[in-house]
Each structure stands twice: as structure tokens, then as C-alpha cells.
Design a binder for these strands. Structure first.
Lengths: 349, 349
DNA sequence: GAAAAAATGAGGAACGTACCTCAGAAATAG
DNA sequence: CTATTTCTGAGGTACGTTCCTCATTTTTTC
């Protein structure tokens, strides 16, 4: 049988109340006694039964996910994953609260964060660009004892507890290696981004250029063209760039826009004739891979992102260590041949 | 507040005992009453608190992992992951029992499986080749109510409940695409396997050939050379093959043997001059990637494998549905640029 | 409509932990 | 050495479930 608190009390020669004080870090125990209890714990190999503990605490975890109200497919897949995770988490006393904020409005975001503080929430997962006002809001949440994790987009200069996401510089480097090797020989590559104000885009581009300039000097990487999230704009500037540059053989898509790009290439009758590499495995990206209109997608598993954020928030709330290796989000390379089966919608319970 | 069984009883106008009978599928309740209770459950949106349930059941999960006693680095990384998972699982009333069997001895394996039956074990994760005697042993375990999952190597013709691992044909196809595209142009590829008796090797080779013959006809894929797990043999036959075949430009390693291959190539002064693609991210493979002696590794995340096996076994034991999307093991492509940071050994609690 | 069978209710103990109160013991200060 | 402060013990209740038992009610059967 696994040892329980009762066994520890007996082993340490103290009462159950004292064991409890030690286990939960409550004051009023002499250092000597603490030591005796801890010795007993290690001697017996006691491991706290977290299920029973949470039950006794009657602790329920309310975790807020704060995401931009962008309509992008990436955010949509994230929402789907969140929905699924929410249903699974319900049986583990965890409730997910979703908040959206206007994408370009840091003040609205700060207001939402401030309002969260009044809602008895244990932790917040936040996907947002870093601005001074957001920094302040995070500090304030933190001071109120909430756990805060940055999701997808890191907030390195804030007091976030953890970053759940990938190293985007490495992701850009990965894209570059594939681009360089798939191209075979010289040519031009155009880089398409939504907006170079986004931290991810900047980092990916940086990593991409690093490797291109080191290993693939025969390839010329053109200036980033920005779509500002509008498909028509993307189509137009891609067409334009292609009519000027003579030897474009690859396209690197820094973020969303798979669909618009596919359409632009189809218009120009170039579908399948270019090496196309992009990020995020959205439904459009998946379709493009399957159809051979796209060569590789660098992605992060959204299900993993959401579950990892939840686990980290829970661990922080419980003041329990996390399994680093489990929380490390992989930079996944997806080509047609290793495309995971379409995630089915979960059958209802 | 979340509704509890008491709320359901009140809502359905029945007693707690009846609710319990319905929830746990115990007999002695009229269909009409069952319906009334279920209606109440959906009306209130009740979700069973599994933590409390398990506590009450005082159920502890003893899960056995049965692995070959091979010394391969892949098995070793699996053991490491298992060890870590074991420590994390301890606080969730789950105990991991490890059994090793002599790799080439199906009778010894069957004996171990039979002995497990007497040990009050809830589920078994098994990594072994499929043989008739193993099939029988699994059937027998199953009849005794144990959950059985196949790990890494599928056992499709047995009564296993689930397979935790990757589609090795797809993995081979993935390797082929990378090989074909990285090679750029014509040449020969040698395929090195441990033993073509292993199901994984066969499937990977099959997938590899499929794609090679469809998309990369300019590449000639030579016969598989078998190392039988002995590094010296591998070195010798690789050297030999290379001295006969004039235009070898790529090497595809079906399974273990990263180290021996690296040494063989170093001997022949070919390190870094070939496209080398292999499977399983072992420490040697990692080192080879970092040093540029290897171009890509197709792998599966061992931590994920182990945790997934545990989750599936638990779910089967609890007769609870699993989150399919979470249990799908990805075919990961690893190159130097997206190599995950070395998993640190977990700090002690 | 009586006897048998089936369904239901009431209540309680248990799982392992948290957290509370209050009395009493031990250590420390003066 | 006493007064005060600090520690410790004993005991209880609670968390949401499971799983008993036994009595009582309802339904079915002949």
C-alpha cells in the first residue's frame, strides 16, 4: 500500500496536524520537527495524492485564455483545440474561460486583463503582442497571485511565468533549410508576411535569412511583402512581385494566408511549380499539402499548446514542478507524407 | 457551483442510490428511471469528478510495460521516458511495472505475460513482435479484463485495444521524400536495416520504395543490407557495398545503428558527403545531426509514446473515452535546425 | 388479489487530504 | 522561576464519489 499522511505521522512520531502543517508549508513548526517529518516522508517514499488533495481543497481551476479576435484560421484551430480541451478538463475540476480582444487595441486588452482579476481566476494564458500597457497588466495580475503564461507569442520582458510556444527563430531556420535544399540550385525566393510588426514574423524572417545567407548563397531572398491580413492585397502584391522578378522559384509564407496564396498562384498558373513553405497547419495548409501545391509546413501542435498551457497553469497554481520535457513544444515539419490524419471532432460523452 | 450527484438526485426526483446505480451501470433500475436520471444529468450538465471517483474507488492503477531486453539506444530512451513518467504518475495513483524479455524468445515473453495475470495489473503496454504464442497470451490477458496496448510495434492481428506508435509505412514514405529531394539528381541509395524480420523495418522499407519508385526514378535504391544489431557487421557491409557501387550518394537507416554507421562513414572518409536519413532520435542520432553527419531523422516522441500508452490504459480501465487527437503519435521530422533542446533529467521533487 | 420478484430509498462508511479550533505542552524571555 | 510566546496534539468536518446493507415500496406473475 502507498503510504498516507497517517503513516508519516506515525513514522515521524508526530501528530497528523503537524504533518499537515509541514506538507502545506503552514507556519508554526520548529525547524527540527519539520526535518523529522521530511525524513519520514523520504524514508517512506510518500507521494501526495493530488486527486485527494484537490478534492479536499475543493479547488476548482478557472483558467482564462485571452486571444485576439482575429478571424485567422490559426486562431480558429486554436479555438477548436481549446474547446476540446475544455470538455476534457471539465472532469478534472478545470474550467476554461475564453476572452477575445480587438487585435490592434492594447487598451481593450488591458481592460480585459484587469477585469479578469476580479473574477477569481487562477491563471491566464495570453496570446498578444507585447506593449507597455500589457506589461503593466501582467505585472498586476501577477501581484494578485495569478499564474500567467504567454501563448504562441512570447512576452519575454514581462513577468510571465512561462512561454508556451516554439522558438520562432529556429522555426525560420528550419524553413530555410528546407527551402534551400528543395530548391536545388539558384533562384529567387519571395517572403510573404501578414505584418512585420508581429514578433513571430520578425523572428522567423530573421532565422530564415540567417540560414539562407550561411548555406544557400545562390538563392536570392527578396524583401518581405506584407498582406496586412487581407487576401486581396496578398494576391495583388504577389502577382506584382512575380511580374517584376524573373527567377522566383520559392515562396516562404511567414504566417497565415495559405488560402489567398493558393488562389494567387492558381490565378498565375503557377500552382505546383514553386517550392512553397509556410507556417501553421490550418485546414487550408493541409489541403495545399495534400494537393501538392505546398511542399512543407512548419507548425506547432495546437492541441499540445493548449494542454501544455493548462498543465503549466495548474502546476503553477499548485506550486508543483512541471515536466519540462513534456512542456517543450516541438517545431514540427509536415509534408504530405507525414500529414497526421484529420483530427476528428470528439464524439460526445 | 458544479452539480454533484446530490443535485442529480434532487433534479430527477430519485434517491442518491439510484443515481449511483445509473452512473455506474449497476443493475436493478427500470429503463424509465434510468432515462429520468440521464435527463437530469444532461439538464444540469453534470460531469463526473474523476478525482473524487477514483479516490472513492481507492483504485490504483498498476500498469505493466513489457519491453525487449535489447541494449539499443532507442529502447534506452524509452526506458528513460518511462522512468520519468513513472515518477510523475505516482501522484496520480498510477504505478509502472517494468518487465524485460529476451529479445528473440517468444516463449519467455509469453511466460512473463502469463505471470502478469496473477499480479493484479490493470493494463499492459507491450513492445514485441507478433507471434502466435504472443497472440494467445494477449487473448488470455484480455479475457481476464486487462487492457492491452501495442507499443511502437503494432500487433494488428491480436486483440490489443490500441496501438501507440506511428504508421511506419508513412514514416518510410516521409524518409523517401526527404531523401529524394535532398539528393538532387541521380545516384544510388543504400538501405541499412537491423533485421528485415522486424515489422517496422519491413514497413518502412515498403513505404520508402513506394515513393522512390513513384517520384524519384532517377535514384536507384539498392538492396537492404542487414546488420543484425552488430556494429562491426554494419561497418563491414557498408564498406563493402560502397566499394562495389560507384555512385552511392545517400544512406537510409531503417532503425538503430546510428553510431556504427557514423563510424563506418568516418573510416571511409565519407562523413558529411552523403545524404544520411535515419529513424529514432537517440543520443547518437542527435550528435550526428548536430555535427552535420546526418541530414534528417524521422522519429516519434518517446515521452509522448509512454504518456499516451498510460493514458489509453487508464481510459480503458475506467471505460472512459480517449481524446483521439491527443493519442495520435506524430511522425516527426528532425533536422539540425529544429532539434529540440536536450531533455534535462528531471530535478527531484 | 396474494405471493414473488424487482426496484427504490435511506443511511452510513470509506477513500486521502485539507483546514479548522482549542487545549495543552514545550521552549523562550524577562 | 514565572510569564509569555511558540509549538504540537487531538479531534472534527468537509470534498464528491463508490459501494455496502436493509427496509420499504412498486411492479409483475399466476
Amino acid at each position: 500500500m502507498r503510504p498516507t499522511v497517517i503513516d508519516i505521522a506515525r513514522e515521524a512520531g508526530v501528530s497528523l496536524a503537524t504533518v499537515d502543517r509541514v506538507l502545506n508549508g503552514r507556519p508554526g513548526v520548529r525547524a527540527k520537527t519539520v526535518q523529522a517529518v521530511q525524513d519520514a516522508i523520504t524514508r517512506l517514499g510518500y507521494v501526495r495524492d493530488v486527486a485527494a488533495a484537490n478534492l479536499a481543497r475543493s479547488r476548482t481551476y478557472r483558467m482564462a485564455f485571452v486571444l485576439p479576435d482575429t478571424e485567422s484560421q490559426f486562431v480558429q484551430t486554436l479555438l477548436d483545440a481549446l474547446d476540446l480541451a475544455g470538455r476534457m478538463a471539465a472532469s478534472a475540476r478545470t474550467e476554461i474561460i475564453l476572452r477575445r480582444f480587438p487585435a490592434e487595441d492594447p487598451h481593450a486588452l488591458a481592460a480585459i486583463l484587469t477585469r479578469l482579476a476580479a473574477e477569481d481566476i487562477a491563471g491566464v494564458a495570453l496570446m498578444a503582442p507585447e506593449t507597455p500597457i500589457v506589461r503593466d497588466a501582467i505585472r498586476s495580475l501577477h501581484q494578485q497571485g495569478m499564474a500567467v503564461v504567454a501563448l504562441v507569442s512570447d512576452l519575454p520582458n514581462t513577468e510571465r511565468d512561462h512561454f508556451v510556444g516554439i522558438d520562432n527563430i529556429a522555426a525560420g531556420r528550419t524553413a530555410a533549410v528546407l527551402m534551400g535544399r528543395f530548391l536545388t540550385g539558384q533562384g529567387q525566393v519571395i517572403v510573404v508576411g501578414q505584418s512585420m510588426l508581429l514578433r513571430e514574423s520578425i523572428e522567423r524572417r530573421f532565422g530564415f535569412d540567417q540560414v539562407m545567407m550561411r548555406d544557400f548563397l545562390q538563392v536570392e531572398v527578396l524583401q518581405t511583402v506584407e498582406s496586412h491580413g487581407r487576401p486581396q492585397v496578398l494576391r495583388q502584391i504577389v502577382s506584382e512581385t512575380l511580374s517584376h522578378a524573373a527567377n522566383v522559384r520559392g515562396i516562404y509564407l511567414l504566417g497565415a494566408g495559405h488560402r489567398a496564396l493558393s488562389e494567387a498562384l492558381a490565378d498565375l498558373d503557377l500552382a505546383g511549380r514553386m517550392v512553397v513553405i509556410g507556417h501553421e497547419l490550418t485546414p487550408h495548409a493541409r489541403a495545399a499539402l495534400e494537393a501538392g501545391r505546398m511542399d512543407a509546413v512548419i507548425t506547432q501542435n495546437v492541441g499540445h499548446l493548449v494542454r501544455s498551457a493548462l498543465r503549466v497553469l495548474r502546476a503553477r497554481t499548485d506550486r508543483v514542478p512541471i515536466d519540462e520535457s513534456q512542456e517543450q513544444i516541438r517545431i514540427e515539419i509536415v509534408i504530405r507524407e507525414n500529414l497526421p490524419a484529420r483530427a476528428e471532432t470528439q464524439s460526445d460523452l
